[in-house]
Write a protein that binds this DNA or RNA. Structure first.
Length: 589
RNA sequence: GGGGGUGUAGCUCAGUUGGUUUAGAGCGCCAGCCUGUCACGUUGGAGGCCGCGGGUUCAAGUCCCGUCACCCUCGCCA
């Protein structure tokens, strides 16, 4: 080892020892006779002093040091003179009086300094990620990520789960997200697909008798990026045999409690609260509601039916819904102009026809552009239904159920933040269960799997497969953290006949099913145990546990919104020879 | 694919209704001074295709059109 200690560990107890520290020059303060240097590594910072007693050669060498040079300083640990202790530094009670210096490597002047106060633009950080990752904040996040994964691995190991790796080069399954494809050289004209998840392999492992499987798995989905979505991401993937939904949820409850305790020092009450999908959509307009605050969606369709307000009446009478939220104290906070902006927001982003608003005055009277459309009795009814108090702002959307969900979910999220209805540091864990098996795809005129095509229906809903698939509920469960889907799983179909029935509903006939999933259908016929599992989005867990709003900060080398890597400049062009070997010709633009 | 935001010195930003100097500041960088600093201080200096291309105008960092990059978002994400 070139060093005897790290830059973060020296304390008063080390005084008198001769030590060698290795690290990067974080900053230097040249006082002429004395030179102070902060040396940084991932453990912390320590101050090295080159003083008037040092020989001129050492002083001159030390003076030549610049930001981010890599150095090895040897010296004696000394207490800092009285009045010069730095309480902001863990090592602030001591300093290292240098006796020798080795410059291990120089550095160009960095485009930004990892120790600087203001953060450069994200593109610059991504381009020079090695500098960005030197920042204590990034190191804190990546170490938090490590600890979360460690907790997961330990927990499942203790429960007897076996870590099995599954292939990255697999077969394309066109359902679901767009695949990343990898051309085959040996099988010219054919392609592998990178896994969207190890779903089928883990089911095969259950059939193979592995009973409890776990893996930290890379997954790839070629879809557009978001603040919380990367094309390449990491799942904690697991599967269990001889279990029901209850069992998987129970195991995961234990993990959540342990992670919250070990990572955040929080005691989480178990079992975690659960609500059904229908309840979530009805109350929050979304299948992953943020339960850190109320602001529930309230239905007033019955009132709307009675009123003379055409917007409301028409929606109520055409099978739509009228729903609203009551923003506490929103009347003063949202001016006419601000409400216009909210209206534009729901129209543009969620396709709502408009936004109807009412304000409750200090005397309890209800005002607003739409107020004249209601009788005083109906206004009172609305106010009571939404439990509105003076000073509250009421916002309504009248539309098809789906549109009211999206628009009011968007509003709820926005108002929750803008009105500070919750502590941004609070953590809330819950389950949403009993998702629909299918959603109707209007474009394809076809039922589509809500989760994936291997999801088992609730036993009592099996007859609905033939009669009313839309009402069929799945043995599915999503883990929700602070309004983010942090994991999702299902009990799987373990019976080839039932599997084929679901495929049929999804428009996958026997021939197609055989071509795509033949191996699974085969395997299901050789003694498949009942099984189910879940996958957790590790990047999102880190994001939520670290209280960040951006998944890129949780990943060492993330991609930009256009799915490029600014450091390596991937994706890049390839040599024509490589294309020839693969039998690929690029279409001319 | 649609909507929005940002782009000025190495970095973070300011730059008024289009016109006063040679486009500024802080940090960083370079050189000097300084025995206790830790956002050190201090003196001096270097550093600009105002993202790129076109247009309007006597005059464009500023207005218009296009384009590129990054970010947010809708669609998309079994």
């Amino acid at each position: 080892m070139l060093r005897t200690h790290t830059c973060g560990e020296l304390r008063k107890s080390h005084v008198g020892q001769s030590v060698t520290l290795c690290g990067w020059v974080d900053s230097y303060r040249d006082h002429g006779a004395a030179l102070f240097l902060d040396i940084r590594d991932r453990y912390g910072k320590a101050q090295v002093v080159v003083g008037p007693d040092n020989d001129p050669e050492l002083k001159q060498l030390a003076r030549s040091l610049r930001s981010e040079f890599v150095v090895a300083f040897t010296g004696t640990v000394a207490p800092r003179p009285e009045g010069t202790v730095n309480p902001k530094l863990a090592t602030g009670e001591i300093e290292v009086r240098a006796t020798s210096l080795r410059i291990l490597n120089k550095s160009l002047t960095p485009p930004f300094q990892p120790g600087a106060m203001d953060l450069p633009g994200e593109d610059l950080r991504l381009k020079h990620r090695y500098l960005d990752l030197r920042r204590p904040e990034m190191q804190r996040i990546l170490m938090l990520r490590h600890r979360i994964i460690k907790v997961m691995r330990d927990y499942f190991d203790e429960l007897g789960f076996v870590d099995v790796e599954t292939p990255v080069l697999g077969r394309s399954t066109p359902e679901g997200a767009r695949d990343y494809l990898v051309p085959s050289r040996i099988q010219n004209g054919k392609f592998y697909a990178l896994p969207q998840s190890p779903q089928l392999y883990k089911q095969i492992l259950m059939i193979a008798g592995y009973d409890r499987y776990v893996q930290v798995a890379r997954c790839f989905r070629d879809e557009d990026l978001r603040a919380d979505r990367q094309p390449e991401f990491t799942q904690l993937d697991l599967e269990m045999s001889f279990v029901e939904a209850e069992d998987v949820i129970g195991v995961l409850d234990g993990l959540v409690a342990r992670a919250a305790r070990e990572i955040l020092g929080l005691q989480v009450k178990l079992p975690l609260p659960r609500m059904t999908y229908d309840e979530a959509m009805e109350t929050y307009g979304h299948d992953a509601p943020d339960l850190r605050f109320g602001l529930k969606l309230i239905d007033v369709t019955d009132v709307a039916r009675e009123c003379e307000f055409r917007v409301f009446k028409a929606a109520a009478e055409s099978g739509g819904r009228v729903r609203g939220i009551c923003a506490p104290g929103g009347a003063a906070k949202y001016s006419r102009k601000a409400i216009d902006e909210l209206t534009e927001f729901v129209k543009h982003d969620f396709g709502a026809q408009g936004l109807v608003w009412l304000k409750v005055e200090s005397d309890g009277a209800v005002s607003g552009s739409a107020a004249k459309n209601f009788t005083p009795e109906l206004l009172t009814k609305i106010r009571e239904r939404l439990e509105a108090k003076p000073g509250d702002l009421l916002l309504f959307v009248a539309d098809k159920f789906e549109v009211t969900c999206k628009a009011l979910y968007g509003l709820r999220k926005r108002l929750g933040a803008e009105l500070s209805l919750y502590d941004p540091k609070a953590m809330n864990f819950s389950w949403v269960v009993e998702f629909p098996m299918f959603a109707y795809d209007e474009e394809e005129k076809q039922w589509a799997a809500m989760h994936h095509p291997f999801t088992a229906p609730r036993p009592q809903d099996v007859p609905l497969l033939d009669t009313d698939p839309g009402r069929c509920r799945a043995q599915a469960y999503d883990l929700v953290i602070n309004g983010s889907e942090a994991g999702g799983g299902t009990i799987r179909i373990h019976d080839a006949e039932a599997q084929q029935k679901v495929f049929n509903l999804l428009g996958i006939d026997a021939e197609k099913a055989k071509a795509r999933f033949g191996f699974l259908l085969d395997a299901l016929q050789y003694g498949a145990p009942p099984h189910g599992g879940i996958a957790l989005g590790i990047d999102r867990w880190v994001m939520l546990f670290a209280n960040l709003d951006n998944i890129r900060d949780c990943i060492a080398f993330p991609k930009t919104q256009k799915a490029t890597d600014l450091m390596t400049e991937a994706p890049g062009e390839v040599d024509p020879k490589q294309l020839r070997e693969l039998g690929i010709k690029l279409a001319s633009p």
